[in-house]
Amino acid sequence: MKSELELRGVQQRFHARGVASGYITAVDDVSFTLAAKPPQVVSLVGQSGSGKSTIARNVLGLQKPTAGSVLYGGKDIFKLSRAEYDAYRRDVQPVFQDPYAIFNPFYRVDRVLWKALKKFGLTKSRSKGLELIEESLRAVRLEPENVLGRYPHQLSGGQRQRIMLARVHMLRPSFIIADEPVSMLDAQVRKHFLDILLDFQREHAMTTLFITHDLSTVYYLGGEVMVINKGQIVERGPVSTVMHEPSHPYTKLLLDSIPQPDPDARWTSRISVDELEERADAKAAPAPEAPIL
């Protein structure tokens, strides 16, 4: 099956009080395509509030965009037939940001894996299911006996986030939508996590949309990168090009905001965020504001 995930002119507005227009535009006319073949890692970088997570929710079908559409295999994901919907759900799976809130505190962590097995009809037999679960846990370098039967609060953040990866490993989707998956992990666990993602890309041909605010993880993952600012994608291209020769002032601002890990290069110069943002705004194509209301 030709699977491709495409965003076409996606716009997402939220009602907001105290704003002159009565709404805020979180995502503004975003279009891009994720191809399953060849498997790749595409990063989406931007600061807090730039609309990254909203895009993830749109792609996952958790939030219907105000305008534009999200297409899976050429069809709008909100108008899929039952069989197509099943395929889409199976094929597009998330890793969320918060490894604490992702587990229902009422249940053992195994439930997340068993639910996935059952809902996607991977196997009917319990012993086969347990086999699959253990295999997936080992694939994300977790010892099944250390995590199975535990409650979420008994596991560390890194362990929990890797259980979510094990879930993805079990389902083998073509697309992983990873929304800031490492922002709450410490540096060591973070690298571990990114390596597993890269493994998935190589061994199981999974394409990852990696959403982050952290440029160093983007650099580590490589592949393509898209820079988003105020709901608009302002720059895209291969990581090496964008990082070394940023063309958009906002990308430059992002790169300048990282302290150099060099004792001689003291981070003394003050960055005037306002000034840089103004320049970035001025350069960004003035989007025609067409109020829909």
Binding site: R57, L60, G61, L62, D86, R89, V92, Q93, P94, F96, Q97, D98, A101, I102, F103, N104, V112, K115, A116, K119, F120
Partner: peptide, 13 residues
């Protein structure tokens, strides 16, 4: 609006 509800939704609940 908890994430585990979102997770249940993408697991076809």
């Amino acid at each position: 609006s908890r994430p585990y509800v979102d997770l249940a939704r993408v697991t076809k609940a």
